[in-house]
């Protein structure tokens, strides 16, 4: 039953879901703004301790992957299945690179003794603790979304292979693409808040 075909409605529903995702991060941005106004100096100092190179690199590759996802949708619509698959595969691997970078970055910080409730952080000022606490929560939640988004792209990849997603039925790929753009969009806010706060 329910054989309706309404791709616009499918996308509409996805957008509604994305609103809820934005508000999920919105709560964190509220917390950020409250503590930023309270501990401005510490947040600026904290931002200096983050690796600007890693952050910028991740921003650039995530932006590129967003472009390649969009391009793969166009390719699929133009019946260039192989191009679509290649672009999608590239986007997924970029997601993995992003996560690897994040892992390295976190690992380095933890190695330095900067992690929630660490002895080093306990000696620091309250603002520094808040900055790194929020840093871990926000980038961690974002990384979780990268994993979910990458999985969704992989599912689309498999469905294109099985011809369940084709030029006539691109909705799944389009919606997964939308999700990936959201992951990208949120990072565009996270990046300046933490890495560029100085």
């Amino acid at each position: 039953m329910n054989m309706h075909k309404d791709p616009l409605g499918d996308r509409f529903g996805m957008w509604l879901f994305l609103f809820s995702e934005i508000l999920l991060f919105g709560a964190l941005f509220v917390i950020y703004s409250v503590y930023f106004s309270k501990y401005q100096a510490d947040f600026i100092a904290g931002g200096r301790q983050l690796d600007l190179f890693f952050g910028t690199f991740n921003t650039v590759i995530l932006l590129i992957s967003s472009f390649t996802v969009a391009a793969s949708i166009t390719a699929l619509r133009n019946r260039q299945r192989k191009t679509a698959l290649a672009l999608l595969g590239f986007s997924i691997s970029v997601g993995l690179v992003f996560l690897y970078n994040k892992y390295m970055e976190w690992g380095h910080k933890i190695h330095l003794g900067i992690y929630p409730d660490s002895p080093w952080l306990k000696e620091q000022s309250h603002g520094t603790n808040m900055f790194f606490g929020l840093y871990y929560v926000t980038t961690g939640l974002h990384a979780l979304h990268v994993i979910i988004g990458g999985t969704l792209l992989a599912v689309s990849f498999a469905f294109i292979l099985k011809n369940k997603v084709d030029p006539e039925h691109p909705t799944l790929l389009e919606n997964c693409g939308l999700y990936w753009h959201l992951v990208d969009l949120i990072w565009i806010f996270v990046f300046p808040l933490f890495y560029l706060s100085h």
Binding site: V34, Y35, K38, P116, H126, N129, M130
Partner: peptide
């Protein structure tokens, strides 16, 4: 789980938040 302290005044957090 991790004792971040986002709402803990002894670590700089604000319980009213």
């Amino acid at each position: 789980a991790f004792g971040i302290g986002l709402f803990d005044p002894s670590k700089g957090g604000d319980p009213v938040l």
